[in-house]
Write a protein that binds this DNA or RNA. Structure first.
Lengths: 311, 311
DNA sequence: TTTTTTAATTGCTTTTGTCAAACAGATTTT
DNA sequence: AAAATCTGTTTGACAAAAGCAATTAAAAAA
């Protein structure tokens, strides 16, 4: 993949900037006679719990072996870690934090939190949240193991100001990018929201949102259009968050909500081109009840109607 | 300002993570016999151009005086910097980079860029952009001198998929937060967009967007409702970007567009509570042509109508 | 003028980190 | 099975990075 020079510049500048900041944030380490490397070792040991060897630390942290050996020795004499000889290989030792080591880490983290708090103090609530979000993004893009997991996702069932607009935004931009729909599609979505908001009634309508932090990353809704039938709409999961089961979760919630509200059937309109979505619909008991070829959103598409009976 | 513990956690974790990454990114320094402190000194010297003293470096970089003195000495013997005795104070020296020093910095930055490129290589284009954006955000929130300037803002006059939704989102969430409007307001905005998108005609309608990167941070539009009059709508600048003259710029563009399209007047509807906006309208020649007290968006508001004649 | 303060330097020390050699257990080769 | 090789860890020697305290010289204050 080619590299954008603008991006390189920003990353370099960021690195430059962060180097100064890091100095500030790591100042408290010295108070506990710990080097940055020492800290990283302790953190890693806690992470690996019990199955960590010196070699693993060397490989993972990129520390020189000799230096590490000394670090570990002082840790041992200070009773921050304990060693346990491997039964398989007489050369290797399994390293683990002692309660004292754990405690120190906690103290360290407390100190770090204090430094950070001081840094954040002058910022407004929103800026703080924006900062956390941006940092999470950085980490998440750069590190393999900071991948978003399903645990990071929360769900909301109330519609707050700004939500509708954002869902429309997601639909407009993502369908344009992924399926090539034109502006008409967003106009259509806008119309559906207009109709919905005009007649919003929580006893028959239900929106679900998948959130990452305070960012909407997925949506679905069931809208009671008659006594018996409810329409499912706005089913979408942001591409960065696909494959985590969020779509299924939203769909389940929507179906359950429709059942709870005693609707007899759910129907939805989609296009044949939305393969992953239609696959999911079928897997959840929906069946196709109609299709129609027509020009839509600047393309030649096949509009499909799916339905499911809820008893 | 109180500090959100979730944010503290993320910042701490980020710091932890970035410490490892920094090691990687700063590895090339050793190739040039430079410590991180040394680099920071050089960078600072270039920044300050000519008026930098050792004291200033100590204060700004937080380096120990003795250590700095030695760093500077080796820099001088390597002809990376030159000293010039102050005429005001016989104790202080003004430090400046020599061409050789400048050159070294460039080489260093080239090396850094290479490291960064390697890091970015496996990422997709979008991820790279997202990364740069997030880093910029971090820097921008934390550092005083990375404040956004008017130069960073660009303007766009086309409406792309996703834009409408995002403008609605901004209106919904910001007016809720800043003015306490309820969901009805977003429904209203949605209605205005619905009407607009149904009958969009570029010969009479014009949207302007203020952008920061690829993020919409301000908007305005003039919508030709009749042969003679055009309505101004969706005038909003995100709070993080106020005070940079973006509002005025948008307003000017909108008025000019209305003139170009040969409309005779512009009118707009707002509320008396929008003091900064109405002030700007008046300053630009608008006059109040009506007002009406009424309950709106969950509050008791005064709806105001403003007009301006364009000859 | 004397005293105090301030900008920078120097001497001494500790901490941090690197490199190469050594060592001991494990694995492979002969 | 003995020798050779490889691997995980330790040790010794050393260099670089950084901090602390005392010193010097010019400036400012008393």
């Amino acid at each position: 993949m080619s590299v954008n020079p603008e991006v390189v510049r920003e990353v370099s500048e960021f690195n430059n900037y962060y180097n100064s900041l890091a100095e500030l944030l790591n100042r408290h380490l010295a108070d506990n006679n710990l080097s940055l490397s020492g800290l990283r070792v302790l953190v890693k040991l806690r992470e690996e719990e019990d199955q960590c060897t010196a070699g693993k630390l060397i490989a993972n942290l990129g520390i020189d072996g000799g230096y590490l050996s000394r670090i570990l020795k002082t840790f041992e004499t200070n009773q921050l870690i304990s060693k346990r000889k491997s039964t398989m290989d007489g050369r290797t030792w399994y390293l683990q934090l002692t309660p004292k080591g754990r405690k120190l880490l906690e103290i360290l983290e407390e100190g770090s939190a204090q430094q950070v708090s001081q840094l954040l103090e002058p910022l407004g609530t929103e800026q703080q949240l924006a900062l956390a979000g941006a940092m999470k993004t950085v980490r998440h893009i750069l590190s393999d193991d900071a991948k978003i997991s399903a645990d990071d996702i929360t769900f909301r069932r109330d519609l707050q100001p700004g939500d509708a607009g954002f869902i429309m935004h997601m639909h407009g931009s993502l369908y344009a990018k992924e399926a090539g729909y034109n502006l008409d599609y967003e106009a259509h979505i806008c119309k559906t929201f207009y109709e919905f908001l005009e007649a919003y009634n929580s006893s028959k309508d239900q929106v679900f949102l998948a959130m990452h932090g305070n960012q909407i990353i997925g949506s679905i809704a069931v809208l009671g259009h008659s006594r018996y039938a409810t329409q499912m709409r706005w089913f979408l999961v942001h591409p960065d968050y696909r494959g985590l089961g969020i779509g299924q979760r939203l769909l389940t919630e929507a179906i359950n909500a429709a059942k709870e509200k005693l609707f007899q059937k759910i129907y939805l309109i989609t296009t044949a081109q939305q393969v992953p979505a239609t696959t999911l619909f079928k897997k959840n008991g929906f069946r196709k009840s109609g299709e129609k070829h027509m020009p839509m959103w600047g393309l030649q598409l096949t509009e499909e109607r799916y339905e499911i009976d809820l008893i």
